[in-house]
Design a protein around this nucleic acid. Structure first.
Lengths: 108, 108
DNA sequence: TCAATAGTTCGAAAATCTTGAACTACGGAA
DNA sequence: TTCCGTAGTTCAAGATTTTCGAACTATTGA
């Protein structure tokens, strides 16, 4: 827990890592939830309720390393936030259109 | 080879299957190549040159079942084409923005 | 009819993912 | 301050996916 989080610079974020991160249903779920709330969210808040913590942790790591989220330790918890603005600048429309599409799709 | 190809109806295509299919570097490469040419392309044409045929075949199957491409047998070969228009209607901007982003990224 | 081309199928080795168990860090209570 | 609970991480191994060689099928052209 002491190791600081590593976030890639926006210019180092690759499209592929983004797609890879979003291709997992659980991670897409997390991203959707983060996109919903305006401010950051801790891990257990953003992840599906029944997901084992070790799996949670793994998914957040993938999202972080892909450059999709920014994580910050706040006491005992970790606050995660989507890097929307930066990513929109780097890959215009990609995240936005995916999030929009995912909203339309979810009511099923 | 006799089995006919199965293509999902547009309305059955899921965002997740699309993202999953595109998240693989090889498959993204294939999709980019298909998006480049205006008409269909056979498998070996669209796939990276050195990719084993069995792997090729697998990737095309994934793309097909995800709903990204439509494949048709033409004599001994299979002609593949992106289902752009349909997908644009179902998931506006998703494929387009990804393709655009991938162009920007590729020059490296 | 035969050979060549284009792709598919199968099975097994290699690579990834998932998760329980044990652990670390921090904050609050006593 | 020490102890407990909460939040998250790490590790290792079992489960799942991917990859790809080898053998196969279909179709075309000679």
């Amino acid at each position: 827990m002491q190791r600081p989080f590593v976030h890639p610079a926006v210019e180092d974020v690759t499209l592929e890592s983004i797609l890879y991160a979003l291709a997992d249903p659980t991670r897409l779920e997390i991203v959707k939830k983060l996109a919903g709330g305006s401010c950051g969210m801790n891990c257990s808040m953003a992840a599906p309720a029944d997901l084992p913590k070790s799996t949670q942790s793994h998914h957040f790591q993938v999202l972080r390393e892909a450059g999709l989220i920014r994580s910050e330790r706040r006491g005992t918890e970790v606050v995660n936030a989507l890097r929307c603005a930066e990513l929109e600048k780097r890959f215009p429309g990609v995240i936005a259109s995916i999030l929009k599409a995912s909203e339309k799709t979810k009511k099923r």
